[in-house]
Amino acid sequence: MELTTHIDLDADKSLARVALIGSLNTDTAPGFALRLDEAIAAEMDLTVLDMAELDYISSAGLRVIFKAAKQIKGAERKLAAANRKPHIDKVFEILKALPDIAVFADDSEMDEYLTAMQDQVRDE
């Protein structure tokens, strides 16, 4: 029941991709919190939690994501989740957690979103 976190920063797209692999539980939540702080510190416009390989999440893990969402929202930036497995999705649904963050079903959805964002920036 370990958790591995990969952080991939893309300055061009101003995107921080945080990939969670394994189980986000009471034990692994504190370590993940530190990693997520690193990603947020990069101050990208969009921070995406890639849950493609996340098998398990408990309320301890959700608390870390809540805190990060509040922090990012306060800094006028965005947090999004991508590739949630059905049973992970179910937990979010039960708790009606973070109703206002962007959720991408897969990478292509995320790319569309990023393109739209960049277009918007160019229009301005």
Binding site: F66, L95, L98
Partner: peptide
């Protein structure tokens, strides 16, 4: 179901 800014951190376990 509260928005991120208003949602409390914690108190979720009993719902689960």
């Amino acid at each position: 179901g509260l928005e991120t800014a208003a949602a409390p951190i914690g108190g979720l376990g009993v719902h689960l």
